[in-house]
């Protein structure tokens, strides 16, 4: 267990609902769920097979204080942000945002599931695009394909060969990006400064929250 996780668990003891309300973004909405299940019914992903728990069940687990099960659940990471649940919730609970809030909190305190593909994609995408302000598509693809080792990476690359060639022909993919000659935004320094400031603000906000 990470330090932060232990700290939080100690701080809120048995009141996991309060922990989520105070620590996770949009967590204060969890108590407003009335268990109608419209979110689950509206979800276009095949969550019955892939999700540990549908959204309304996850909310109920938070209220029932099932801390470990919730934080380690893969459910939050399976959301595709289609906003169907968000639009349909009769209680106007921003379900999509709540799911992201819980996911982010689980990640922050080091409790999120390891090697979860969406989590990996998010992290890779973020690191990739914040470097130059634009996505380096070749490198992004590489790091995703070779996530599970060289063998499977080559296999995937071979499978997608014709797509890649088509993209190159249509000038939608620049192979030179592989050696770092990618398109970048004009003011990289500005972007980095902006992100640094945002990070600073967020860190302060979370530090305040943890203190409170």
């Amino acid at each position: 267990m990470s330090d932060l996780n232990q700290k939080m668990a100690a701080k809120y003891q048995n009141n996991f609902l309060k922990e989520i309300e105070e620590q996770a973004e949009m967590g204060e909405w969890v108590k407003m769920c009335m268990q109608c299940g419209l979110c689950s019914g509206s979800c276009p992903t095949n969550f019955q097979a892939g999700w540990d728990h549908p959204p309304q069940e996850l909310f109920m687990m938070i209220r029932a204080g099932k801390r470990d099960e919730v934080l380690k659940s893969n459910s939050m990471w399976m959301c595709t942000s289609c906003y169907n649940c968000y639009v349909r919730c009769p209680r106007k609970v921003p379900v999509t945002h709540v799911m992201h809030g819980i996911a982010e909190y689980a990640y922050r305190i080091g409790q999120s599931p390891k090697n979860q593909p969406t989590q990996h994609l998010s992290k890779t995408f973020w690191d990739n695009c914040t470097k130059t302000g634009r996505v380096n598509e070749v490198k992004l693809t590489q790091s995703l394909y070779f996530k599970d080792g060289i063998g499977s990476g080559i296999k995937k690359a071979m499978e997608m060969q014709s797509v890649a060639l088509g993209l190159v022909k249509a000038k939608r993919l620049n192979l030179m990006e592989a050696v770092g000659l990618s398109h970048k935004c004009k003011d990289i320094k500005g972007i980095h400064a902006m992100l640094a400031k945002a990070n600073e603000l967020e860190a302060k906000r979370q530090a305040d929250k943890a203190k409170a």
Partner: peptide, 23 residues
């Protein structure tokens, strides 16, 4: 949970106040 009339607003208010509803 059956809240006739304007009970739905009352229900929501209770949730806001932190009353836990479990099925």
């Amino acid at each position: 949970l059956r809240t006739p009339g304007n009970g739905e607003d009352f229900y929501r208010s209770a949730q806001n106040k932190g009353v836990i509803f479990s099925k």
